[in-house]
Write a protein that binds this DNA or RNA. Sequence first.
DNA 1: TCTGGGGTCCTAGGACCC
DNA 2: TCTGGGGTCCTAGGACCC
Length: 384
Amino acid sequence: MVHRIILHIDMDAFFISVEQRDDPSLIGKPAAVCGSLSRSVITSANYEARPYGIRAGMSTQEARRRCPGLILVKGDHSKYTRTSARLFSILKDYTPLVEVASIDEAFLDITESILLFKTPSHIAQLIKERILKEEGLTCSIGMAPNKLLAKLGSRLKKPDGLVIIQKEEVEEILRDLPVEKLNGIGPKLTEALNSMGIHTCGQLGKVPVCTLTERFGVIGKRLHEMGMGIDRSAVIPFDEEEDPKSISHSVTLEEDTSDPQRLRKVLLQLSERVSQRMRKEGFSGSRVVLTVRYSDFYTFTKQKTLAQWINNGNEIFHHCFEIFESLSHPKPIRLLGVGVSHLKREWVQLDLFEKREKRNNLLKAMDRVNERFGDWTLTWAELY
DNA sequence: TCTGGGGTCCTAGGACCC
DNA sequence: TCTGGGGTCCTAGGACCC
C-alpha cells in the first residue's frame, strides 16, 4: 500500500473557545459551556477551568462546587454548527478527502496533496494559521501514517499542538503509552486489559492474537493491531458517507414526573422532531425505539418492529406511546427518547452529484454539516 | 438539585424456518 | 421417539465515541 499521510484536526475546547472569541471578557477566567443552567453537564471547559478538575461530562453542580468562580455559558449550538461548517470549508482547500469525525474534528488524507505544497508539515502549519486568522480559534493537529496514530498525535500535545509521528517512531512512541490513550479503548477495555497485565500499547502489541480473541471475541484482532499502531481504515469524505442507521431525539425533563399528560406531550413533541428530520433527509423507517430513564437513573429501551414504513409524527407517536403504555412505570420519569431505525431512503438528494463535483463549495459543506449537527440547535426551551 | 444528547457497533438468547 | 445444524430476524443491553 502507498504510504499515506493522514492529518487529524481537533479544535481546542471548541464550544468555550467560540464563546471566548465572541465575548473576550471570558478570556483568562475559568469558564465552561453547559447544556442548560440547571440539570445539565459541562460540554466544554476552557484551560483555566481544567486545573480545578472541570471536565466535559461533569454535572454543572459538581463543576460549581469544585470551582465557585466558574463562569457558565449556555451553549448556542447553531453558532457552533455555523463555525464548524466554515472550518470544514477551510480544510477542503487542502484535499477533497476530508472526513467529518465530529462537529469539531476532522481527518484529512493529504497523501496526494503534497505535490501542491512544500511538505506535509507545511500543510498542517497553513491550516493552523488560517483557522487562527479566519476564525480566531486554535486547534491541535496530529500527522501520521494512519487515522489511529493521527488521532493519538492530536491528543498528545494540547492546546495548539502539532505532533508528527513518523513511521520509524511508531514503535518507540507506543512502547510505554498506556492503552487507554488509544481511540476505541475505553474504561471497560482498559480495566480488562490491565487485569491481564497489559498496561501499555507495547505490551498489547506483543500479546498473541488468539489470546485476545479468546478473551474479547472479534475485537481481539483489532486490539492486537492497535497495540502495534496499525490501522488500515480509509478517510471517508462527507459525500461518500453511508446513510444513517437511526434517527432519534431525547430530552431530560426539567423535573422528574409521573404525570401522564405531560409525558404524553413530550413523546408527541419528540416524535414530531424525529419525523421532521426523517422527512427532511428523505427517510422512512420500520422500527420504533422508546427510551425511558427513571429518577434513579435506571435507563432502558424498548423497541417494536413494524410491518410498514413510516415517517410521520402521528404514526411514530402512536407506536412509541403504545410501547410506553404497555409498561408499568414504577418511578417518576427523568428522560424520554424516541427513535426510528431500520431506515430506508425514500428519495435521493438531488444535489448529491453536484456535491461530488463541487467539493470546495462552501454552501454544500454547510448543508452537510447542518444535516448532521443542525438539530443540536434545538434546546428544551424551544420545545415549549 | 449529582449524572446531556446524538450516534455506531457488537453480543447473546429466543423464535422461526429449512 | 431422544433429537442436528445453519441461517435470519427480533429484542435488549453494553461499550464506546464526541
